[in-house]
């Protein structure tokens, strides 16, 4: 029972202080789960990161589910950790949504959003830039073939979604199938 409480408390904290999306959350999770409680070894943690990247879904949710199960060896552990990590978002988002829908036309809020909007575009651009790394594209030094092929996949997917408006879900399926045959 104490273990479940600790799990809940830890993942609630991670949900509450996990600013800046999945990758920023991972370092928080590592600090609590590996260093503090020792629920997972460093190797198991690296495995979770790899598994999160190869399975669908938000990384924060994937990590919570996996840690919850591994720490307790029970599905209820997974439910506890996953529920705890989304609870802070739930409370905060509902509160903010309510407030914003009510004060939509307030000029102060309107001008804050005027500043936020272009910055959000920049944030998403930076996310794309940061993902252009050797992990996703390989590199000319290690594997020229994979590198060129990855660039081709990138360009094809970009043009298909941007110009031809291909559904992103089909795009993922097509590139997965093409990857299986080409690499």
């Amino acid at each position: 029972m104490l273990l479940y409480l600790q799990l809940f408390y830890t993942f609630f904290k991670i949900g509450l202080f996990g600013f800046g999306g999945g990758y920023a959350m991972l370092s928080l999770i590592q600090g609590e789960v590996v260093m503090r409680y020792g629920w997972l070894s460093t190797k198991e943690f690296t495995d979770i990161v790899a598994i999160s990247q190869t399975t669908p879904g938000p990384i924060g949710i994937n990590a919570a589910t996996y840690v919850g199960y591994t720490a307790t060896k029970s599905i209820w552990g997974a439910v506890t950790a996953t529920g705890a990590v989304i609870l802070p978002s739930f409370i905060l988002m509902l509160w903010i949504s309510k407030f914003l829908i009510r004060h939509r036309n307030n000029p102060v809020i309107e001008s804050i959003f005027k500043g936020l909007r272009p910055a959000v575009v920049g944030l998403i651009a930076s996310a794309a830039l940061m993902l252009m790394n050797t992990e996703n594209f390989s590199s000319p030094q290690t594997d020229m073939y994979s590198f060129i092929l990855s660039i081709l996949f990138f360009v094809a997917a970009f043009v298909a979604t941007k110009v031809y408006k291909v559904n992103p879900i089909y795009m993922i399926l097509i590139c997965g199938a093409a990857g299986y045959f080409c690499f």
Partner: peptide, 20 residues
């Protein structure tokens, strides 16, 4: 799985770049 993901990873980066 590794091969499939080699194809998906660059596409995901493109999917993030396109909505910019």
């Amino acid at each position: 799985v590794e091969r499939i993901f080699k194809g998906i990873r660059p596409a995901v980066v493109a999917l993030i770049a396109a909505p910019v």
